[in-house]
Design a protein around this nucleic acid. Structure first.
Lengths: 220, 220
DNA sequence: AGTTTGAGTGAACATATGTTCACTCACAAC
DNA sequence: GTTGTGAGTGAACATATGTTCACTCAAACT
């Protein structure tokens, strides 16, 4: 009875596959199952046996791929931040179709949150609720992102007008509101999504334009 | 052997107590134990037996007070928002000692997060990681707070300058950044706290002053 | 005084969990 | 063709979990 009524199982099974390919396939299946299962709880409430059952393997086989659920979690952090960085890459390439960089950023965010929903949900959730090591890893990654953004901003603004501290604060602000917006999008019912996006745009506009004008008027 | 090496147990045991007083005491002990235990995981990873052991009662006695852990969680939501509203009350009474309302708000936030740490931690965590019903309850409460803040802001600003939609967006922005700041304070090591507070102040100043000036310059 | 009530007990259950161990047996290397 | 490796198996374990049931026994009510 390997047939279990699980919506997310192993894989469509490629015709012929090498030993390594097979292993990679179940590894992916484990990661996907974990990502999916912890979406309505948390990594800390996820059991090894749950994911094994979902994947369609025996619990012990789990150990061939990961030492523990926490170990699995650390891999998911890496993976999720690959998704997040892909998003940042798209944000940086300012879409010429949009006049406003802020509006296009929200669109890109929305698009990526939709297509990589599980990853963004994972970051938002485990950032505050995950096992300590996972929490720390996520915070570290977010700090890195923040620093990169500060460097980007330094290139975009007049060097004299902004101190590195100011840039750092601004970068932190933007990253924080980005995470917040992602959370709101994730929590929103699909039909309310457009309204929420419009609101997010208005908010980001308020903040960024406000901060920029504030800064340009301040002497120090 | 009722003596268990648990740092948070039942209570110092009042001299003579009525039946109802006794019940209330263990009820409180259960709430406190749950609040404390789920701090480094989540409600979804909290077991009935854990809290029973911590309190020093037998697992079945738990049912005399709550139907389930989730039921307990709903009570903790109510309780935590009492703490949050106490903070808001203190924020509204703008401390005459401080010139700047923003600075004083951050101080009040800091003070309350310290004294009611478990409650704020609970809200921040379960908001995204709790059981669905708990998540929904927290979101609902935050929406209420947001609406009240919008009403406050309406009283504080020129009626013509701000549309209700704008006020709503601004209120949302302030609540969001309040939650974010609380999270940062909760996660910070004590010795870095002052620096973090200074940064939070700078950030809130940027945002609020920026938004205000932005708005006053906009015609529509 | 006698009776009722209900917080807390203790045993028992079915089930879920992490982890171990010896095993199979298809693929890869020789 | 023989051999070895290592992903996946299946049984077994000790322990943790939610929930039940019949119980105690002191405070509260009559």
């Amino acid at each position: 009875m390997p047939a279990d009524r699980s919506p997310v199982a192993l894989a469509p099974a490629a015709s012929v596959e090498s030993r390594g390919e097979r292993k990679e396939r179940t590894r992916r299946a484990i990661l996907d199952a974990a990502l999916d299962l912890c979406e309505d709880s948390s990594l800390v409430a996820l059991s090894l046996r749950q994911v094994a059952k979902r994947v369609g393997i025996v619990p012990t086989a789990f150990y061939r791929h990961f030492d523990s659920i926490e170990d699995l979690g650390m891999v998911l952090v890496e993976e999720s931040f690959v998704s997040l960085r892909e998003m940042l890459r798209d944000v940086r390439r300012s879409d010429p179709e949009y006049l406003d960089l802020i509006d296009s950023s929200i669109s890109v965010l929305h698009e990526h949150v939709r297509s990589r929903r599980a990853h963004f949900s994972f970051i938002a959730r485990e950032r505050v609720a995950g096992p300590p090591a996972v929490r720390a890893a996520i915070r570290h990654q977010l700090d890195l992102v923040e620093r990169e953004l500060a460097a980007d901003l330094a290139r975009l603004t007049a060097p004299a007008a902004w101190s590195t501290e100011d840039l750092s604060v601004l970068a932190n602000l933007i990253v924080t509101s980005m995470v917040g917006t992602a959370e709101v999008i994730l929590a929103s019912r699909p039909e309310a999504e457009q309204a929420i996006l419009e609101r997010a745009r208005a908010q980001l506009r308020m903040v960024i334009v406000g901060v920029l004008r504030w800064r340009s008027r301040t002497d120090r």
